[in-house]
Design a protein around this nucleic acid. Structure first.
Lengths: 212, 212
DNA sequence: CTAATATGGATACTAGTAGTATCCAAAAGA
DNA sequence: TCTTTTGGATACTACTAGTATCCATATTAG
């Protein structure tokens, strides 16, 4: 198909598609002449992925480019690449402030306690310390019970996530699922969490007062 | 204290503080003359909250303004206000595309199954439908098992969240905790999830291959 | 008490992001 | 053949989150 059709089928205006080509989040079409190119369903698919990552996942175009570069890289071992992909997703979503020393210790301690055997120096570990510091700086530190409660919950989530990724066999499919599962999964969890909060809140106040 | 001290103690440049005053995310100081004002620790505190919400929570200044307006509003019943606060947080974090009819049904069905007794028309419900649609549009629909797994996990999280909010008694403290717990909590969960994923991934591949 | 400096507030300017719009030579179609 | 349409390059725009400048008051050092 040519660009007009790609635009119509995806619902994305032609100038925006051209912008995505410029920014490298959409690969160039197959050239069929000096000033003509052809696009396939894979372009349509990629376009939908880009919009999902930006609109729902809240990622910037630059972040999407980095992640997709990792997805497209022709590395051999899928599992190794999967690890890198998952790691790549985090730093691009957000930048935190610096962490306190004690929070870094707490982070390491939790990971040890949970046997999450994180490699020597993973981004997520320092990110955890930074988020804990942010809680403390605003005067509402996270206590041990809360941290352990969250940890137990995310372990369950991680099992679901790995099942999701494992539900497919081709390497590039696995990687795409890892990205989608991680980025859209965060959005899904956030919205489910709001719903569960209202439910739990109603349940607790229901005994004494009205349920809102 | 005067603005220079507020700036020094918070680490935020004076022009940025002035910007926050303009944007209404930081209340004006107490006026002590025609062109002079005094700030207190509550301003320092608010400043830290604003930075936590923008830097760690990824919210825009406009979103922070809306949320803080809700926190500052002097409503009577804390629990009612708590509900509104939690609801207010979602729409401002992100805007999704339109949802499919079938996904709206699935969302409603899940909420019913889980007895999350959500009011007639809550934002989070349509948001859920929209996220489910996003998954489907990129070709990786969420299956029932995954949805239920997530649901069970967030119920646990919601209990922890309500304990966190309940751990304090003053009305404005409760509201601030609800905001912090929701916004920073999303960031905390996201980073814990990455760690748990690596852990689970290592555990699963450990039986057959190396643990990365 | 006066002169130098600092402050609060208003207005103007800037860098970065995510697009839009315009232009043009080379295809494609009537 | 002659009119569209296309792909690509370049230029422009709207919005966000600050920065910088200005100036009439305050404050403070001498």
């Amino acid at each position: 198909m040519r660009m007009a059709e790609l635009s119509e089928r995806s619902g994305i205006p032609v100038p925006t598609i051209k912008y995505y080509l410029r920014e490298g989040v959409l690969p160039r079409g197959e050239r069929t002449g000096r000033s003509q190119a052809r696009y396939g369903v894979e372009h349509l698919r990629r376009l939908r992925l880009v919009r999902a990552l930006t609109d729902v996942g809240g990622l910037s175009i630059a972040a999407v480019r980095e992640i997709l570069a990792s997805v497209d890289s022709p590395e051999p071992t899928a599992h190794e690449l999967l690890g890198r992909t998952l790691e790549d997703v985090t730093p691009l979503t957000r930048r935190f402030g610096d962490a306190d020393e004690s929070d870094a210790e707490r982070a390491a301690e939790l990971v040890g306690r949970r046997a999450w055997c994180v490699p020597n120096e993973q981004r997520a570990l320092t990110d955890l310390a930074e988020v804990l510091s942010a809680f403390r700086r605003v005067g509402h530190p996270v206590d041990e019970a809360m941290l352990d409660g969250y940890a137990a919950a995310v372990e369950r989530i991680a099992r679901v996530d790995l099942d999701f990724v494992g539900g497919v066999t081709e390497t590039d499919e696995i990687l795409e699922r890892a990205v989608v599962g991680t980025v859209l999964g965060d959005a899904l969890l956030a919205v489910l969490r709001r719903l569960a909060q209202t439910g739990e809140s109603a349940r607790r106040s229901g005994a004494s007062a009205d349920g809102r």
